[in-house]
């Protein structure tokens, strides 16, 4: 597989370079909203959705910035873009799909400060991805995020039922679990640099 083929980008972002477990992006929701499966899944889906939208917009904005030779405004442009993209998604959902809005609505504001979104926009720019590659990259990042947060929620639901020493409850436990998950995902690392 060539390093820039679409299938490679997708697999690599979902598994080998998982945004949460290998790149440490989007940790706040990963630690914060992973208590229950029923909230983790919508959070993942909402994030994927916003990622796709903002990746698209970031691609367009970057073209404009490069054309005008004002790349130094990139960061400010991206952060403004993400904030407004989230707002737009929220409004559009409310208007056209109230059911989906009820399911995802409360997660949307949380996503604005999710560094995975800004990270995605920045990385796709640094890697010089074209339009299709950017979209696949965003999809892969979203799916990877969803996968990680759902796995984490599953683990935490199980552990909620077991007896643990009192000190190890809370964030420390979540981090340890994250470490184990990350260790498991390391098994996919060869995907990136294989033959």
């Amino acid at each position: 597989m060539a390093a820039d083929s679409l299938s490679f980008i997708f697999l690599n972002t979902v598994l080998a370079n998982n945004f949460v477990l290998a790149m440490f992006l989007g940790l706040c929701p990963f630690l914060g909203v992973s208590g229950k499966l029923e909230t983790a899944l919508p959070m993942g889906l909402a994030t994927t959705f916003v990622m796709l939208v903002s990746s698209l917009c970031a691609y367009g904005i970057n073209l404009a910035l490069v054309a005008l030779h004002i790349e130094f405004l990139r960061l400010i442009a991206y952060i403004a873009l993400i904030a407004s993209a989230v707002q737009l998604v929220e409004m559009a959902l409310k208007r056209y799909s109230p059911t989906l809005f009820r399911a995802l609505g409360i997660y949307l504001p949380l996503i604005t400060t999710n560094c995975a979104i800004l990270g995605l926009a920045l990385f796709q720019t640094f890697k010089g991805y074209d339009f299709a590659q950017s979209l696949v990259y965003a999809l892969g990042a979203g799916v990877g995020f969803t996968l990680a947060i759902v796995l984490m929620a599953g683990l935490r639901e199980k552990l909620a039922l077991s007896r643990l020493p009192s000190v190890s409850q809370g964030a420390a436990l979540s981090l340890m679990l994250g470490g184990l998950l990350s260790l498991a995902f390391m098994g996919f690392a060869g995907l990136g640099g294989g033959h």
Binding site: A3, N12, N17, A22, K127, A189, G192, G193
Partner: peptide, 8 residues
């Protein structure tokens, strides 16, 4: 250039 472990 080539894809390494973490990045290009």
């Amino acid at each position: 250039a080539a894809q390494g472990y973490a990045d290009m």
